[in-house]
Nucleic acid binder design. Structure first.
Length: 362
DNA sequence: ATAGGGTTAG
């Protein structure tokens, strides 16, 4: 399977239209520990000086408390208008914490335009981004789907922590930039000579990437990492591992991992059951569905929809009707995806009347 | 402080 066809091209800068990583990036990364230490002290001193200066020399009211109030009251537009109405030297009085509040408000309001505006103000005021402000911006841009901006923020941070790496990797993984996600994961392990230890948030992102690429070899490699780093017993990580094997078409390994779990949750069961269905092993999936119930796990919407479509594929009308009955009793019928799979199932059985009933059931 | 993980078909 061609990797490049699945991974959208990302152009990060007009100067580097075809390169995923601007050249300056490597330089920055390699010596960022030293840079970080120097600039960090420097910027701290600078902000202290600034706030000292403001509180004594200027008699105007402090913009920070006003802006913080606006953020607390959710008045994003007022806050943005206020910031942009200030002259640059007055903007200089705005503290990083205040910008953090505004950025987070933009994120929660999904306001990309406003967020970008604030970002451009911030860039005019500082050359480096602190950990807190950088992380807030990263998280905002990733959530709002602007990965180019996220990438630039990452590059401008004077210090990065595990959160920064996880957010960026997760953003790439979710948006289908699989190569970028894997590349960042690799860098994260080695950066600064020591690297960062991946955690429960890192692995699901990286595994999703391998699954998305269908890259079994990489997936297996990550499986090794996760054992080495001691996450073999983490339900969430292992759930992601199951899904990775399923997406790579290796249901056998998925099942081995599933069987080896000392604790399973609903997601583990669903991942494994639908994994069988996805790979055409419907009867095995249905068998597991029954053992799920034996193990006293309540099936949920996802279980039901996948089981219904499995009944359709296998052509098991009797079981399909039974599941329909169960679904009706438990009240899942109101769900669109359940309804759709019911309609499709009955249609494939040629039971038009039933299909129609499901259609009108809401 | 903040983040990650589960569905289906040509």
């Amino acid at each position: 399977m061609a990797v490049s066809s699945k991974t959208p091209a990302i152009s990060l800068h007009p100067d580097h239209p075809n390169s995923h990583f601007p050249k300056s990036y490597n330089l920055k990364i390699q010596n960022f520990p030293q840079i970080f230490q120097r600039t960090h002290q420097f910027s701290l001193k600078k902000t202290q000086q600034n706030s000292l200066l403001n509180s004594t020399s200027s008699s105007t009211t402090d913009p920070n408390s006003y802006l913080t109030q606006l953020c607390l009251k959710n008045q994003l537009n007022k806050a943005i208008n206020f910031v942009t109405s200030l002259q640059k030297d007055s903007q200089n009085n705005i503290e990083e914490e205040t910008f953090v509040s505004i950025v987070r408000l933009c994120e929660s309001k999904r306001a990309l335009k406003e967020g970008s505006l604030i970002y451009s103000c911030i860039l005019k005021l500082m050359t480096k981004l602190s950990l807190r402000l950088g992380n807030a911006l990263l998280s905002m841009f990733v959530r709002l789907g602007s990965l180019n901006d996220a990438w630039y923020v990452f590059g401008k941070m004077e210090e990065r922590d595990l959160f920064s790496w996880n957010v960026l990797i997760g953003g790439y993984a979710k948006s289908g930039y699989f190569d970028e996600a894997l590349e960042m994961y690799g860098k994260m392990l080695w950066v600064g000579g020591i690297g960062f230890k991946p955690d429960v948030y890192t692995f699901p992102c990286v595994l999703r990437t391998c699954g998305g690429l269908g890259d079994w070899k990489r997936g297996r490699e990550i499986h090794g990492h996760l054992i080495r780093f001691g996450f073999e017993a983490d339900v969430d990580v292992v759930n992601a591992l199951i899904t990775m094997y399923v997406k790579c078409g290796d249901v056998g390994s998925a099942r081995m991992v599933f069987d080896g779990m000392c604790r399973r949750d609903r997601i583990s069961w669903n991942a494994m059951i639908s994994g069988y269905f996805e790979n055409g092993e419907c009867s095995e999936g249905l068998r597991l569905f029954f053992s799920m119930r034996e193990c006293c796990f309540e099936p949920d919407l996802m279980t039901m929809t996948s089981v219904i479509s499995a009944c359709e594929v296998v052509g098991n009308e009797r079981l399909g009707r039974a599941v329909h009955g169960y679904v009706a009793k438990t009240g899942y019928v109101d769900d669109d995806s359940v309804d759709n799979s019911l309609i499709q199932m009955y249609t494939s059985f040629g039971s038009w009347g039933e299909a129609e009933k499901s259609f009108w059931s809401d």
